[in-house]
Amino acid sequence: MYRGREGQWAFLLHRLSGLAILAYLLIHVISISLFMFGENAYMTVHRLYDFWLFRIGLVLIVAGVVYHAFNGLRIIVMDFTGTGVAYQRQMWYGVLAISVLAALYTAVRLYPRLVGGY
């Protein structure tokens, strides 16, 4: 493992969250479009999403989307201004804080569903 600093982990998380969002979007489109084959096909797949891993996944996908969005803003600021490059570390910690807060908020709002299912 190369011992890079904040920038390297910001880049890696940006890639991973981007891939996670892409995977989520594909699953989302495919499972919704199953309605073309009737309600039965649709519900068989959607009942799977009650599995605990998918319920926790809801919190992670919120964290991923928020991270990707705000880190994207960080990258825009860095690309267009010199001060953005100078303060990239501080901005990254800000992005992390916002992502964690968003994940916590989701966890609190979804608490009954997270522990008890639908």
């Binding site: 890079g4 920038g7 880049f11 860095m78 010199g82 490059v85």
Partner: peptide
């Protein structure tokens, strides 16, 4: 360049590489 900043941290001549690439 995906601005991972490893270059800037590594430069033994203290060149602000990411700033230069931007």
């Amino acid at each position: 360049c995906r601005t991972a900043y490893n270059c800037t941290e590594a430069c033994p001549r203290d060149i602000p590489i990411t700033t230069i690439i931007e």
